[in-house]
Design a protein around this nucleic acid. Structure first.
Lengths: 182, 182
DNA sequence: GTCTATACGAAGATAGAC
DNA sequence: GTCTATCTTCGTATAGAC
């Protein structure tokens, strides 16, 4: 930032920064509030002052990505079928790559994501994206879109090992092969 | 079994049966030894009499699948490149579908799989399979094979929602689109 | 706003009786 | 072999001082 940051916001940001890194490195389940507090240079109690609990920390970490996905879904809703498909595929790849750290984190949470009302919106939007990316209403094409999304999520694991451009190129080719045969 | 089962083996089997179901339903991380013991109708101490710890329970759950994957890798090692590719793809789909409950469980463990020496063999064999399934030595094709495996793993989530035949058909089509373009 | 101290529960694991 | 009882550690969360 160009102007000086209030101390309270600085702590909050630092907690989110470190939580993000730890979630990515060790997974959400394996990261404790103590881990986050230590990394952020504050106490557990401070973390719980800024966030109501561990799920709230996760929701805050996911929030920027969730907001962008929601925007993408809203934009695609105004388009016709085939225009929306192209738009959804390109946009989904862009977001998954841009937020590939977040994409990595999400996968550790999938088994318990139903019990997390904090991220329900992101889940719903993800399902909508799959429907948009499918080449037709054929259930097979819908399943292939799901397959593509799962593959894409998997490629975002350990994001440090591959450049954003390499990742984008790979995903573009893979989704092209899987989804453009309607 | 046709002959009567010794009581000690019956308990052990029941623990594994229930552990498998719980791992599938709620994930490995979210399943406690107490959950397993209660479901199996015994105490935590009994679970720990039969298995040295929770990772050992997981390893025993994965063992039959791991053994079959190892056999598949060994068989493919004796083949030429393109024959091995076809064989690996078909065999991998068969095993992933046959053991789709196990496939589901594995995904919850991936973030911490490096710290589990008990399942190291399965991980290594999985990597080998990816190499075999790639259409060429081009790194892109290798990455596409990884993409395919990730997609396939994802499709094995919530195995109850789809028949084995549907799953096999879907995976065959998806891997065909992704991998046969060398 | 941030801390220390603490409550409370659940987890994995062990000891020893039966 | 299986149990009850217990230990230890760690998790989330709260209370109250500064």
């Amino acid at each position: 930032m160009t102007v000086s940051t209030p101390a309270r916001e600085r702590t909050r940001r630092e907690i989110l920064r470190q939580a993000m890194d730890l979630f990515q490195l060790n997974g959400y389940n394996a990261t404790s509030l103590q881990d986050i507090a230590s990394a952020a240079g504050c106490s557990k109690a401070t973390v719980l002052y800024h966030f109501s609990g561990k799920p709230a920390v996760l929701a805050a970490v996911l929030e920027p990505a969730a907001a962008d996905v929601a925007r993408l879904v809203a934009a695609a809703a105004a388009m016709g079928r085939s225009e929306a498909q192209e738009f959804a595929i390109a946009g989904f790849i862009d977001l998954a790559v841009e937020y590939r750290g977040v994409t990595d984190v999400i996968q550790d949470v999938i088994p318990v994501i139903e019990e997390m009302p904090e991220v329900a919106g992101l889940v719903t939007d993800g399902m909508t994206m799959i429907g948009l990316m499918a080449a037709s209403d054929d259930p097979l094409e819908h399943d292939l879109a799901k397959f593509a999304v799962n593959g894409l999520l998997g490629e975002c694991r350990r994001p440090g090992e591959r450049s954003a451009d390499e990742l984008r190129r790979l995903c573009t080719i893979a989704l092209g092969r899987l989804l453009r045969r309607a």
